[in-house]
Design a binder for these strands. Structure first.
Lengths: 249, 249
DNA sequence: TCACAATCAACTGTCGACAGTCGAAAGAAG
DNA sequence: CTTCTTTCGACTGTCGACAGTTGATTGTGA
């Protein structure tokens, strides 16, 4: 897995894009073997994998038993995920995996478009040949995932690509919002999983974005991103409806 | 206090702007007397008031003693605030009030501009005479705060105005990000507190925004917002530097 | 007086426990 | 056989406790 821990407590940014003016730390801080973070990651994984389905209850007592810990760290981990919108707490009833509706999904994509388009200007201003190379490498990776049929990883790396783009913008705060957002969206996408658009085609569709970035053409970059994201939203919404409609009837 | 609980667990949106297509609930859900939320609000208040200064340690044991509760709910509340970036947990060391630097402050304002400009288009499309009236009423409130010299409340209501504007956009997800963001910014602003720009002038400066909105002129609204926010950022950054420089030397 | 080591109080991470609550299963009444 | 009531298991909210750690204080030697 290439993205960060996605629990909102990001310890180190992706090292592939030297976007921030940080002096490139030689050593990443040892991940403090934080029980809470590990539990949060486990639950996140379970949601992303679809082992925990939307609306399903996440009983802290049961989770603690299975993980072999006490309930205290489990509760804290769930609160962490709650603030990210992945689970919601109903007082005296427990935690439940957040079940999104189409409206929320659309809103999330709208927010995503907002962030990415805004960052485009800064990205163009700060882009370097190395960054472009890294982005192209990421697309190559996407292709590989497509060929190997690893759709789950494909989604992950797709988001990683967009994250790199955002990182180029240099706004760490925006990056944090995107991380939260992508965790949610990935969880939503996990629902439909296999029946995804042709992955190779998706990989392809990122190339015009890189081209526009390399040409330092803000308007074109914005246009390409806008179209790309609109497509992604379209696909996601359609898949969402397909996945939920049969259950509803 | 007019804004919501700002702990990220928003139970009801501001009722003054009928932006969402929600059927206007007659009764707000009774606030579940959630110990965790109340503790989080207390700490948030303390940070906003400046009783807890940036960088200061927030000892959960001490907090629990003073609040008369056990440490468990205090820890959960602090985790909640951690995920909002208001405090940071250092493993085995405890929680500390997040001390922003100028870069982060600028990034936060950048994100804010991103959200508000993006929502402008939707706001224009969905604006109603009632919404405009509510916004004008809010500005009147701002004026009153200015006259009465209640600068703390002035800041709160200023954010409330912008929140109303965003609510008009109809994207609940964006609203959530803004709520987090404004909690952070308010905490930062609380630092400087009294020496704020002329409050009456600030209240005045919102009027062109409403005019552009009423005229349903997206471009003008964007321009006005952009200028307004750039000013706000300028002031905030200058105040920040003034407030921190003397301490540094 | 200053640098360094031993000491110690306070705090964090985690645990197990208890009371109250919720929802489902079991049982009674029609 | 259905519907309402009762019962019961499992779970949540909160608490106090214990072990290990941290930062500061005190004490020691030069």
């Amino acid at each position: 897995m290439d993205s960060d821990s996605t629990t909102g407590r990001t310890f180190a940014a992706s090292p592939r894009v030297a976007a921030d003016p940080v002096p490139a730390p030689l050593f990443a801080a040892l991940e403090p073997k934080d029980l809470v973070s590990r539990i949060a990651d486990q639950v996140l994984q379970a949601i992303s994998d679809g082992r925990l389905r939307p609306g399903e209850k996440v009983a802290e007592a049961r989770l603690a038993r299975e993980l072999g810990t006490s309930r205290a760290p489990v509760r804290e981990a769930l609160r962490l995920l709650e603030s990210q919108g992945l689970v919601i707490a109903q007082p005296r009833r427990g935690f439940f995996v957040h079940a999104h509706d189409a409206t929320e999904l659309a809103a999330a994509y709208d927010l995503r478009e907002c962030l990415e388009l805004h960052s485009a200007a800064a990205a163009v201003a700060r882009v370097t040949p190395e960054a472009v190379a890294a982005l192209r490498a990421q697309i190559a990776l996407l292709h590989r995932m497509a060929l190997e049929g690893r759709s789950q990883d494909h989604v992950v790396e797709d988001f990683a690509f967009h994250r790199m783009l955002l990182a180029l913008g240099g706004n760490a705060r925006i990056l944090r919002v995107f991380d939260q957002l992508s965790a949610e969206l990935r969880a939503g996408i996990a629902l439909v999983g296999k029946m995804y658009q042709d992955p190779a085609e998706i990989a392809e569709s990122h190339l015009p974005i890189i081209d526009a970035l390399e040409a330092r053409d803000v308007a074109r970059l914005r246009a390409e991103l806008s179209e790309h994201l609109r497509d992604a939203r379209e696909v996601a919404l359609r898949l969402y409806r397909d996945a939920t409609a049969p259950d509803g009837l």
